[in-house]
């Protein structure tokens, strides 16, 4: 941004109910404007909602937003706008840490987040991003290349046919995005003759229970549902070898909504 003196009006300006006095320099007016915006009562709830959606859940309760907005307004030490305090409240609030979250809690992991999350869970390297960014383009999340200031998706996108639930990340999770994500994952898993990163899982794959428990711990922190567990269990005996048994368990879990939705 460059100051343009020819376009600067010198008189007093009233804006959002506050007045910038006459005779200020451009820089003073700019700083003053930002202060006025910063102090507007809407800012706390706005930032709280956006950050909660980015970090924890797409549909926070009013109480959760209020708690976070309050922390923005005043961090306990008289300071407004302390983002450390804000993020701490977001992550430590009981709604974020509920072991039995409700039916509308959570947020969908973006392509990058689910790929990185899976890679971390199984401790495998991804290599240079330039090697696979084109695949992320097909998933709607070209690395560091958002198409607009809103990012790769609108923060206001709602899940279709859900009664109005917010789910911004779903704007880039259509049928084709889902398959592209699945095929990316499978490509990582099915390295020939086998992916060394999943060797520990191949080693225990003959024991279905142990395999599923290990995948559960790695991906879902021991919270795998009975449905997912049973489905994986029932399909393992049809797999031709231990390699495919391990891949089967990981693939089915990592592409299930249970993993893809961060809770």
């Amino acid at each position: 941004m460059l100051p343009m003196p020819a376009r600067h009006v010198a008189g007093a300006k009233t804006f959002l109910g506050q007045t910038l006095p006459a005779g200020q320099t451009i820089q003073q007016d700019l700083d003053g404007s930002i202060d006025i915006i910063f102090n507007h009562p809407n800012v706390g709830p706005f930032i709280a909602t956006r950050l909660i959606r980015a970090l924890v859940t797409s549909n926070p309760s009013p109480a959760y937003i209020t708690a976070v907005a309050s922390r923005f307004n005043e961090n306990g030490l008289g300071v407004r706008g302390d983002l450390t305090a804000v993020v701490k409240e977001i992550l430590m609030n009981p709604e974020a840490r509920n072991d039995n979250p409700g039916g509308t809690f959570g947020r969908l992991r973006t392509p990058e987040q689910s790929i990185i999350g899976t890679a971390r869970a199984f401790n495998w390297g991804m290599g240079a991003a330039s090697g696979f960014n084109y695949l992320l383009v097909y998933m709607g999340e070209s690395i560091l290349t958002a198409p607009s200031v809103f990012g790769h998706y609108s923060p206001l996108f709602r899940i279709p046919n859900s009664g109005g639930l917010f789910g911004p990340e779903f704007q880039i999770y259509s049928a084709s995005d889902a398959v592209n994500r699945a095929n990316f994952l499978y490509q990582k898993l099915s390295v020939y003759p086998f992916n060394p990163a999943i060797q520990p899982y191949i080693n225990i794959a003959a024991n279905s229970q142990a395999l599923i428990d290990a995948v559960d711990n790695a991906l879902l922190f021991g919270r795998m549902s009975q449905t997912l567990r049973n489905a994986i269990f029932n399909s393992l005996s049809s797999m031709p070898d231990n390699n495919q048994r391990a891949i089967n368990a990981i693939y089915l879990a990592a592409m299930s909504g249970e993993y893809l939705v961060q809770r």
Binding site: S256, G257, V261
Partner: peptide, 18 residues
Amino acid sequence: IITTPSGNALIDAANKSL
């Protein structure tokens, strides 16, 4: 896995895409 209702609307929506 992807057609059994999970009890969570977002999980169901993610499964529905696949």
